[in-house]
Write a protein that binds this DNA or RNA. Sequence first.
DNA 1: TTTTATAAGAATCAATTGTTGCATTACCGT
DNA 2: ACGGTAATGCAACAATTGATTCTTATAAAA
Lengths: 309, 309
Amino acid sequence: MPVSRSDALSPEVSLSDRIAQAFAALPPQLQTAAQFVLEHPDDVALLSMREQARRAGVPPVTMTRLARQLGFADYAAFRDLQASALRRPPHTAEFSHRAGRLQKHQQQSGDGALAAQIGWAMADHIASSHDEAGAATLIAAAALIEKARRVYFLGLRSCHAVAFHAHYIHGLFRDSGVLLDGAGDTGIDALRHAGPEDVLVVVSVAPYTTAAVERATYAVRRGVTVVAITDSRVSPVAAIARASILIPTETPSFFHAITPAFAAAETLIALVAARAGEQALNAIRNAEHQLDAFSTYWSRRPQRRKPKS
Amino acid sequence: MPVSRSDALSPEVSLSDRIAQAFAALPPQLQTAAQFVLEHPDDVALLSMREQARRAGVPPVTMTRLARQLGFADYAAFRDLQASALRRPPHTAEFSHRAGRLQKHQQQSGDGALAAQIGWAMADHIASSHDEAGAATLIAAAALIEKARRVYFLGLRSCHAVAFHAHYIHGLFRDSGVLLDGAGDTGIDALRHAGPEDVLVVVSVAPYTTAAVERATYAVRRGVTVVAITDSRVSPVAAIARASILIPTETPSFFHAITPAFAAAETLIALVAARAGEQALNAIRNAEHQLDAFSTYWSRRPQRRKPKS
DNA sequence: TTTTATAAGAATCAATTGTTGCATTACCGT
DNA sequence: ACGGTAATGCAACAATTGATTCTTATAAAA
């Protein structure tokens, strides 16, 4: 078995846990630094502290302070921990050639390469968010949703499409879904009747929309259980969520990829449907039949010749 | 498309090869150093040069000389190469692992397996639709869109989210996009002013929504160039499209996966942005700044620690 | 408001980094 | 033997590292 370095290496995990746990209590500037470390754990071992601070956009002292705050005597102690996590077990050394090769690929240019790279990044993100840990979270979230009296969906700006779609497919087999899209800024109104039996599915990735965070917070105050689809353990919505589905969003392009979040949403609702069982299946069939009656869907009959191109 | 990794020699291999090859011709002291490097490749990236020399039992200069002898300008260049091999690439490197693990999961049963299966299907669909052929189509479509005077986005029901999102990110750097979402069934109105210089991006997968097909057909009659994101070469929209981006939608669940279509749309618009160049980049930045001014986005508020007594 | 405690940043410091120049040594062929 | 070339290591170098100190800004408490 090719050794995967992402799992089973406790020091690495325990460190990011440590950061995530301490995160909320950290001063703002240290949070900036901490987030950078969470997102670029390798850099801690491979870059100088100053270079890292430069990239994170904080003065060098901040990194020192971060290490201290996390309970290390030194920045060196902090770095050593990351280094030992990064170190490959002796016999795996040749495994790294793949990584190198990949980077070479990334240095190619041209639109074709870009497209392939983006696609690959998305595919990988999805795979990573559906692995064992990810699947467990998805299932837990699905369980919450399935039991809910009412399910609210919230996603703004770049995340709106995700919330919209989740609400749509959820609506194919249940009528308890409410989309908080708020035309005319009424997005929060529906939440007024929300309570502890309800669930809010909130989708938010950096840069986090203020309104989304505020509304989610409002829901929490009303006792609503929050399920978050987000990009970081320390995102503002993850902080208040019962279950946080984490999805990476980096791409070779300068957009954040929303696709992984979309994928997570689709899987999530599919899991809810699966839990709901036969009943849900029938509901879906009914929905489609009903729509058919209104001839919403195109049927194959008047197949035209394909126009000359 | 399982990634082929048999071809191409990797930097890592070529490096150790390089050392091994040059080894015999090296002066004794450099051989000592070289041997140490061969045995502890990770240390090159993780330790300081001097520390390494210490462990190898040679004076520091020797390491510099080794790097030079191997054709590097710097010791830094030497180290960087090792570092990039050691680095876990942003998230992309271990796709094949994950693929393997996910596939393994497929044979199991239960919710976890379902989630993994769906994830695998989506990731695979995306990978396959971004391969060479797929990328070529995406590029061709991006070229059409980039030249267009006006770009209409159309997607109904399950495909609405895709069209919505494409329109949204397109709007981040250009103001020529129009979303045909038609509240109150006005979806087609905007097309009245459409003409041959315009492009319609239509998203439609089985079961095809009648209205979408009709509207696209109407656009074609007006001379509009159609780009389709759809699931079959013989789908009603593919028949009338200048460029058809084909994406698979099967999943182990009973929903069709829209995620691959969503991914295609994201890549498509990213390609358009890439073609639009620096200008587009600036526009995006401006968009975000402007939104910032209205405090649309959540900024890390100064979080106070809880008052200590 | 004033007071007080905390956070953030600038300037500075000793230590260490990788490199270079130079002197010394070892080796090889004639 | 002797020159000459390559190899080696020492010492000194500027540059950069991570840490400390002190000052200024900022928010909470009185």
